[in-house]
Design a protein around this nucleic acid. Structure first.
Lengths: 338, 338
DNA sequence: TTGTATGCGTTATCAG
DNA sequence: CTGATAACGCATACAA
């Protein structure tokens, strides 16, 4: 590996001059010298050492992507279609802007924080963080951050969030189901915080606006591992008999359930209508194709990077709480009744 | 951010002593000093600066994951279920071993190389590389490398490869199809190099061993974009009328085609049997579930990291050409005929 | 237009 | 047991 010093020695120049040429500060260097240096640069295919640069400039050109993943839920988060697409979109945009990406996944937020600090990351994209985690990161990491899909209370701390109009998405889906004559609707969610909670609220609101009431028993919480457990699936199957529609918080749950149920003789959508959320690859592959709420995951990733890099270049973000639009995608998994 | 020097000053010690405590070289330091230093370490939650460390030690603790991706094929490679799972598995293992991962995707191998060199990556995992690319990398990058799914000619250059028993997988699948009474089989591949070529060879061999011949027209090459193009799909549909089975080189193609065809009235498997390769998430989701060849992608990723880290620690790899086993998974997309 | 000197945070060598 | 000091590769303030 050639270093600046190597080359300076070869040319009988100082490192300063070589460095200047490398950085295009050619106004301060004579034409002739520039040519000589550039020739050598080419010849040896000089590549700067980022560690050294990072040390002097106190910036690393690394964008950290931190994902808190509950070990009990994911053993391979990146394999999830949603995260895969999101990560891919982030990677593409970061690369296009001349930065690098480093992924930090961990159960423990302190481990993530340690990594972020040790690499002196220039900016951070936080995925799947709850409020407490965010507070902890914020207290030690002082550079720009963007959260994705966060619903941490904004009163406590100002932050940029790139999210979705989750409430509206759920509202529209519920309205659609009601229009199709469904009133016995179960809502299936991961938990009752963050995104899922807001979607549930949208669902509730639509129900109320249409003169329907929601009951606690109509809310089915999918606990980790349930989708792989025969007994839990059977339980859900039993429950399904009380409803005409299952409204799921994610395509993944919708698709997994749909397959389990139809494999056990439940006809979709004749016996039970199903809807998802996200419009993943899966929703298009499954038959009947899944009626779902589309979000533009690639756009989400891209925008996160744009905002983050904007902040790194010291401009205020144009918006602190971005809610990307959402669109109802009607396919074949809902039937009209009555 | 506290530095070693900061702390040394506070304690009236030298950086050497503090550094020694940090690295557990406590045999050279008095109990009392150790305690004092550790207290401060704790108090300020000292985090080392990796750039500085990298500079002195000439190693970065970064494992590079380089993926050459043809722009015309992938706009988001990580979103592909296969790469997503592979990358996730690599990430998990790298993290468990105390290393970090950096992803380099590019169309141009020289860009990848530049990044690898600039970060002084300790080891490299190469995915989707053809022989020429590998030669180019090898000529400039002198640290350990592991290739995944490579079929670069071994005579030219010795290298570690973690791959699959592709030939056998295809052989078994073809044998299975023949047993089920199929002889009019089309083979659908991406191209005729690397993995796909070897799978095709396995297919050919099985055909011959069973007294069948393969003809050039029975080999259908899926060009980039074809899966999204109505006209191409229609063409394939037309072709399908001459066959009783489509044997696809990947689950992705199998699933996409299966859906297109069944949406157009072709009954799977009554009118046409289909098989895939990989045993992705998709193959389990689709109905009828896809008969396919299973590979353990997670194992592939994990093993790659194990081999690579072994080499970084200067031990010879136990094996230069690993061919992971493969398993026929019989589901519902193939019917028995005759 | 070019060169000298210094510092970034860490580790390593060697001397006390 | 502890401490100077140099070195890693690069960028920059300042000097010439």
């Amino acid at each position: 590996m050639v270093t600046i010093k190597n080359m300076a020695d070869m040319l009988g120049l100082s490192t300063t001059t070589v460095s200047n040429v490398i950085h295009g500060k050619t106004s301060e260097v004579s034409q002739k010298t520039v040519a000589r240096v550039e020739k050598l640069l080419e010849e040896y295919d000089y590549v700067p050492n980022i560690s050294a640069r990072s040390l002097t400039q106190n910036c690393s050109r690394i964008i950290g992507v931190a994902m808190k993943c509950r070990k009990d839920k994911y053993e391979n988060m990146i394999a999830d279609p949603f995260f895969g697409e999101l990560l891919g979109a982030i990677e593409a945009e970061v690369r296009a802007r001349g930065y690098y990406i480093m992924i930090y996944t961990a159960d423990d937020i302190r481990e993530i924080l340690r990594n972020v600090l040790t690499w002196n990351v220039d900016g951070l994209i936080l995925i799947g963080m709850l409020h407490d985690d965010f507070v902890q990161v914020k207290s030690r990491y002082k550079k720009p951050m963007v959260l994705i899909d966060s619903y941490a209370p904004r009163e406590v701390m100002k932050y940029v969030n790139i999210g979705l109009d989750d409430e509206r998405g759920a509202y529209e889906m519920t309205s659609y189901l009601l229009e199709q004559g469904h009133t016995a609707i179960a809502f299936l969610a991961d938990n009752m915080e963050g995104v899922d909670y807001v979607r549930y609220k949208g669902h509730q609101k639509a129900m109320e606006d249409h003169g329907q009431r929601t009951q606690e028993k109509d809310l089915i919480i999918i606990r980790p591992g349930m989708m792989e457990q025969e007994s839990s699936l059977r339980e859900i199957w039993e429950m399904s008999k009380d409803y005409t529609a299952f409204m799921c918080c994610s395509d993944y749950y919708a698709v997994m359930l749909m397959n389990y149920l139809s494999d056990h003789g439940v006809r979709i959508p004749e016996d039970l209508s199903m809807t998802g959320f996200d419009d993943n690859l899966m929703s298009r592959i499954v038959r009947p194709a899944l009626t779902t709420v589309r979000q533009d995951v690639t756009q989400k990733g891209k925008l996160s990077v744009e905002y983050l890099l904007g902040m790194i270049q010291e401009t205020e973000p144009p918006e602190w709480n971005v809610r990307l639009p959402v669109e109802l995608v009607i396919r074949g998994s809902v039937r009209k009744i009555g």
